[in-house]
Amino acid sequence: MKILKYIGIAVLIIAALFAAAYFIKSNSKSPITYESESPFITSIEEKSVATGKVIPEDEVAIKPQISGIIGEILVEEGDKLQAGDLIAKIKVVPNEQTLNTARGRVSNANIALNNAKIEYDRNKVLFEKGVISSQEFNNIELTYNQAKQELANAQSDLQIIRKGSAGGSTSANTDVKATIAGTVLEIPVKIGDQVIESNNFNDGTTIASIADLSKMIFEGMVDEAEVGKLEVGSPLKISFGAIPDKEFEGKLKFVAPKWNEEEETSSGVVQFKIEADVFIEDNHFIRAGYSANASLTLEKKDSVLAIKEALLQFDRETEQPYVEVEVGDQEFERKDVETGISDGINIEIISGLSESDKVKVWNKTEPEKKETASN
Rank of each mutant, 00 (worst) to 15 (best):
K2Q: 15
K2S: 15
K5F: 08
G8L: 14
V11G: 08
L12H: 11
L17V: 15
A19L: 14
I24T: 09
K25R: 15
S26V: 10
S28H: 08
S30H: 14
P31G: 10
I32Y: 11
T33D: 11
T33C: 01
E35I: 12
F40E: 07
T42F: 01
S43T: 11
E46R: 09
K47C: 05
V49Y: 04
E57S: 06
I62L: 03
Q65G: 15
S67C: 03
S67N: 06
E77S: 06
D79R: 01
L81Y: 04
L81H: 02
G84I: 02
K89S: 03
K91Y: 14
P94H: 05
E96H: 10
T98V: 12
L99Y: 13
N100E: 13
N100W: 15
T101G: 10
G104Q: 12
V106I: 04
A109R: 03
I111P: 06
I111Q: 12
N123C: 11
N123H: 15
K124C: 08
K129P: 04
G130H: 02
V131A: 06
E136Q: 15
E136R: 14
E136K: 13
N138Y: 12
N138A: 14
N139P: 06
L142R: 12
Y144G: 01
N145H: 10
E150Y: 09
S156Y: 12
I160A: 03
R162D: 10
R162P: 04
K163G: 05
G164V: 02
A166V: 11
A172V: 09
D175I: 04
K177P: 03
T183D: 06
V184Y: 00
L185E: 00
I187M: 01
K190E: 12
V195T: 00
N200K: 15
F201S: 15
D203G: 11
A208R: 01
S209T: 13
S209F: 12
S214G: 14
S214N: 15
K215A: 10
M221Q: 05
M221E: 06
E224S: 05
E226C: 03
V227H: 01
L230V: 04
G233S: 07
S234N: 14
P235A: 06
L236M: 09
S239D: 09
A242F: 10
E247V: 11
F248K: 00
G250P: 01
L252D: 02
L252I: 05
K258S: 09
N260Q: 15
G268A: 06
G268H: 09
V269K: 06
V270L: 10
F285M: 14
Y290S: 05
S291M: 15
A292Y: 00
A292E: 02
L298D: 00
K301M: 06
D302T: 13
A310T: 05
L312S: 02
Q313C: 08
R316Y: 13
T318W: 04
Q320S: 12
P321S: 07
Y322A: 05
V325H: 01
E326R: 07
V327I: 13
G328D: 03
F332W: 05
K335M: 04
G340Y: 03
G344M: 08
E348F: 03
I350Q: 00
L353F: 08
N363W: 04
N363V: 07
K364E: 14
K364H: 13
P367K: 13
P367E: 11
E368Q: 14
K370M: 10
